[in-house]
């Protein structure tokens, strides 16, 4: 999951790098719907708007479009992208008050990822959003780090359910190092254990045998 515009030339945000093209996180993140207002009439697509009977989409219609579509339409000046609720000033104030208490999974779950995309749209408060993103990340980092360094495998979900996907990724990285250390401390790595594939294979075989009998 990464968003890296090449710094030299002015990147067109509708063309994404190959790395992002294949990134599952990027695909999932750009599925999120954001509010858009149509600037031009779109003929024969009135069925997209369930609240009107007209066969065409008229200028001024408000629809929620997936981010990937909104980007493409915005660059052709067909729609005007509006700021999603969770990035507006009210939420920014909540996040600046105490970012650690906010359930970012609820607001996101790709809060940072989408936030970075939104920076490319010509909003008036782009600067505040970008500041808010880095500040929120920094303020929440301590919690993610501490949790990842003392959470055992079984308790993982109780920590990650309130985290953004980016934070979950970092949490898993930190936890992996911690669990490896725990294993080393318990001298578990000296033993060679059966691989999961073999165990499951036997089970499947047994199940197949039972069916025959």
């Amino acid at each position: 999951m990464s968003y890296t515009p090449s710094s030299g030339r002015r990147t067109n945000y509708s063309s994404r790098s190959m790395e992002e093209y294949f990134s599952m996180d990027d695909i999932l993140a750009t599925e999120v719907r954001i509010p858009c207002r149509f600037q031009l009439p779109v003929y024969k697509l009135g069925s997209l708007n369930p609240s009107s009977q007209s066969p065409d989409l008229l200028p001024g219609t408000k629809l929620e479009l997936p981010l990937w579509l909104a980007q493409a339409l915005q660059s052709r000046h067909i729609v005007n992208v509006e700021l999603p609720k969770s990035y507006r000033e009210t939420y920014r104030e909540i996040l600046s008050a105490d970012a650690t208490m906010v359930d970012l999974h609820d607001l996101g779950p790709y809060f940072y990822h989408i936030g970075l995309y939104l920076l490319n749209f010509p909003y008036a408060d782009t600067e505040e959003i970008s500041k808010m993103l880095t500040q929120t990340f920094k303020n929440r980092f301590r919690k993610v780090m501490d949790a990842s360094q003392h959470t055992l495998q079984e308790e993982t979900s109780s920590w990650t359910f309130r985290l953004d996907m980016l934070e979950v990724e970092l949490f898993n990285i930190g936890q992996k190092a911690f669990l490896e250390f725990q294993e080393w401390q318990a001298r578990k790595m000296e033993k060679i254990c059966t691989s999961g594939m073999v165990i499951n294979h036997k089970k499947r075989k047994r199940a197949a045998m039972d069916n025959i009998v």
């Binding site: 890296t4 515009p5 600067e127 500041k131 880095t134 990340f137 780090m145 990842s148 990285i173």
Partner: peptide, 22 residues
């Protein structure tokens, strides 16, 4: 190490895109 380096990477991305975006 893994947590710190990856976090710094993410922070770098956030900051770079931010300055780029603005």
């Amino acid at each position: 190490r893994p947590l710190l380096t990856n976090t710094l990477n993410k922070l770098y991305q956030l900051r770079q895109v931010s300055s780029f975006g603005t």
